[in-house]
């Protein structure tokens, strides 16, 4: 699901403009696997596979693999088309420092949109 994310983000000038003031690290959790997405000045610098014991991060978005699979469809079913749709219906969990997420909300949402099959 995360394969190619770094490259897709590198090719996306709008994304880099939106995130130019953002340097952060957040976690995408798929089932029990936790993937650390490292952002440097709007660039998705790298995606690190765990397992990590004590690596810091700002916030995490975790969901079962089946929920992420639906999210990644070009036109997801109702309840899966947006991270807030997923948290609202209990398909995903947003935890940690949500202030970082809110401060760059469209940027992070656009990163997640790059996970879509047609992105």
């Amino acid at each position: 699901m995360l394969a190619g994310l770094v490259e897709k983000a590198r090719r996306n000038a709008t994304l880099q403009r939106l995130g130019r003031n953002c340097t952060a690290e957040f976690v995408i959790g798929i089932d029990d696997a936790r993937h650390h997405v490292v952002i440097r000045d709007g660039l998705v610098a790298e995606v690190l596979e765990g397992p990590f014991k004590m690596r810091p991060y700002s916030f995490s978005i975790t969901a079962p693999a089946a929920s992420w699979a639906e999210f990644c469809k070009p036109k997801p079913a109702p309840g899966f088309n947006d991270v807030f749709a997923m948290t609202s219906y209990g398909h995903a969990l947003l935890e940690g420092d949500s202030a970082v997420f809110l401060a760059h909300l469209r940027f992070f949402k656009d990163i997640l949109a790059l996970l879509r099959e047609d992105a």
Binding site: K75, N81, D82, A85, A99, L102, L105, R106, K109
Partner: peptide
């Protein structure tokens, strides 16, 4: 509690907050 965050004064945040409420169709 999010309403205490200053981001609500920013149009780009307000748009991003509601963006998923529009249908992908």
């Amino acid at each position: 509690s999010w309403l205490d965050n200053d981001v609500f004064a920013r149009g780009d945040f307000c748009a991003a907050l509601v963006s998923g409420l529009a249908s992908p169709h």
